[in-house]
Design a protein around this nucleic acid. Structure first.
Lengths: 138, 138
DNA sequence: CTGGATGCAAAGGGTTTGCACGTTT
DNA sequence: AAACGTGCAAACCCTTTGCATCCAG
């Protein structure tokens, strides 16, 4: 898919800042949002380059690509495993910790029944956030 | 997003067959795969119409759209909640049951800590399937 | 008859890529 | 100097949509 060699990566201010922006935010931004954030800082920045660097960061394992039902990808800097609460009405995404031991339990469950080697997990809950639920009640 | 009225849906052989194909398969097909399956049966079938009907079926809650990292959507007929094992090497997707009570536990966890109303859950595990793991060992 | 369903082809829209130039090592 | 990084714009590709036609109710 990609023939970049991990050992040959150079420093790049743009890439550094893209990662920093992702680490700073509590949201789960789109590539375009990241682009908007950095455009003032790098007036010549191109959206294509944001995509390129996001892909590199994902390859490096520093950033995770999120794929919800929406039409475009969202990204987040990799942190502790956590649960995503996705509002199906307004699209907001909230983070929550995973119930204790649940990750371990799930992995054991898979290992005990299959030969699949688990590298990472994803748990998501879809529904209505408080605001949208209230709005629907009117 | 869509202004179709659920009460005004008519029967359609194409839509019936699309759902049937999804129910018959153990895989998690793309729209194009479904199209290929049905093209011999409906020589005039168009890919656009497959997409239209898949969207209708998703709206009706009969089919679920899956969004993994791949470039195109996959679909599956709605059945019992289950776990997806996604191979990051070959893209294969396997189903597995969810450990007992885990769904309930997760929902209680969310309800007890937020005002988020849970409608559905998604649990996925990414890693390497047996074949790909063996291949990597060579 | 009426209005949803379909085929066809064109348009959409997020993401990727080729190329020439800029930058890091 | 060599090779990766960037900007720009065009290309990609899956998905959606407009429109004339078809068909179920």
């Amino acid at each position: 898919m990609n023939h970049r060699n991990k050992n040959k990566l150079r420093k790049s201010k743009q890439r550094d800042r893209i990662l920093a922006v992702l680490k700073d935010t509590q949201t789960h931004p789109t590539a375009n949002w990241v682009y908007d954030q950095l455009k003032p800082e790098f007036p010549s920045l191109s959206l294509g380059n944001v995509y390129r660097n996001l892909n590199i960061l994902v390859e490096q394992g520093l950033v995770e690509r999120l794929d919800f039902g929406s039409t475009f990808d969202r990204y987040e800097a990799k942190i502790e495993p956590h649960l995503h609460l996705v509002c199906e009405s307004c699209g907001a995404i909230f983070d929550l910790d995973v119930p204790g031991e649940m990750n371990e339990k799930l992995e054991k469950h898979v290992s005990s029944r299959t030969d699949f080697q688990v590298l990472r997990q994803r748990m998501e809950v879809f529904g209505l956030c408080a605001d949208c639920r209230d709005r629907d009640r009117r």
